[in-house]
Design a protein around this nucleic acid. Structure first.
Lengths: 218, 218
DNA sequence: CGAGCGTTTGAACAGCGTCAAAACAAGTGG
DNA sequence: CCACTTGTTTTGACGCTGTTCAAACGCTCG
């Protein structure tokens, strides 16, 4: 795949900026490959063999599950630097799709596992990675179980803002994506967003751009 | 603590039956200590230093978070063989309490970490433990985000039944505990349970005992 | 027996989902 | 440049599910 090889060569700085898997892979001889995905393109499917570990170089991805009744559940979004597709068993438990156009890095799972076996530092980073994911899920669980619609949306935006280290956030995902992640409908997400604007908790300069107001104290 | 020492001596078979941490600890020189807790007694508190790893020998525990508005969130229940209190950082992110009277095993965190550093097999088991927890949380997230009340209760009971490898389950926890775990109110849990009885999905021989009907096919 | 706790049940209410339509943005072709 | 298409977002009206508040019931233990 010449495309992927070109992507690697032309994108050194993205590799350097990314965290997590990239840093782990950087300690290995095999730095992996970068592939371009277009919007909504599938990266891997549920139940497919989990031979690779993935990292977001640029863009964003979503981990999706289709429910029996046709509804869609988004377990998580992955932003640049995030690692995904790290499974315990042999198969993926989610479908992964690109939210918008995205560059995704790949590392062979066996390579990573062998490295973890030999280098306790790689092993520790790997553990830290899953422990991090665990804590994120715990927080998200609390949100889903015990927060009303507008709080879910607000907390979601605040998490994105903290992640971006900026009050201004460009949303890569649609209202529908957000809804399926927060356990709401897209209509409720839209209403909640505009409610937050009325409350002066956020600003909405354009449909996909949000400015999170600093927690007002006074 | 003579109590704990007695507990260890008088309870060898519980140790042998338990999985996870116990098996990990069994490979070490220090098998840890077992302590008895009474119903609703606190095992450790949120934000307290996480110096120990815990395992349920008998009974059950819950991982609790108190919300700012006074409501309570139960992140997980832990049954015999389960490991809990395994944190990434220095402090616990949940309060842990005994649901009923429980025997809890302790292992020093530093001991476990040193063992993982040296023995890649212990490290792998540790990774498998957190990966397992991760998958459980992913399933629970789907439940909280995309299931109605009666489905949440039904799935919760089915998980318990599978765990017990028996259609009959003795619930260690109250309706309120279940509610705070499923993101419902205790009234809704009660109504859902009786709805499931009317649907002949479960039987309720006594308040704390449930018989899960096998998935009816026909 | 009565006290206290957990559970069940009922009735009124509110928040969110559903359905439907309008507003809006972005791209296409005339 | 405008008309048209397509997909996303917003807005409105209504109904249902789950919450809230309240009371009754059933345990267990003193």
């Amino acid at each position: 795949m010449t495309n992927a090889a070109n992507a690697v060569r032309s994108n050194r700085c993205a590799w350097a900026n990314a965290t997590g898997l990239v840093q782990i892979a950087a300690g290995l001889a095999a730095p992996g490959v970068v592939i371009n995905f277009t919007a909504n393109e599938q990266i891997f499917g549920e139940n497919e063999p989990a031979d690779f570990i993935y990292t977001v170089v640029s863009g964003a991805t979503r981990s999706v599950r289709l429910l029996d009744d046709g509804r869609r559940h988004i377990g998580a979004f992955h932003l640049p630097g995030d690692v995904f597709g790290l499974e315990r068993g042999e198969a993926h438990r989610f479908t992964a799709e690109a939210v918008g156009g995205s560059r995704i890095g790949l590392v062979r799972r066996t390579v990573l596992e062998r490295a973890a076996e030999q280098d306790s530092d790689v092993a520790r980073r790997l553990r830290s990675l899953t422990a991090n994911a665990l804590e994120d899920l715990q927080d998200h669980m609390l949100l889903l179980g015990h927060r009303c619609a507008s709080q879910r949306v607000e907390l979601f935006l605040m998490r994105l803002a903290r992640r971006a280290a900026s009050a201004t956030v460009d949303l890569p995902m649609s209202r529908c994506d957000i809804a399926d992640h927060l356990g709401l409908t897209l209509e409720t997400v839209s209403r909640s967003l505009n409610q937050l604007v009325r409350d002066r908790t956020i600003e909405l300069p354009s449909v996909r751009r949000v400015v999170v107001r600093p927690a007002r104290s006074g």
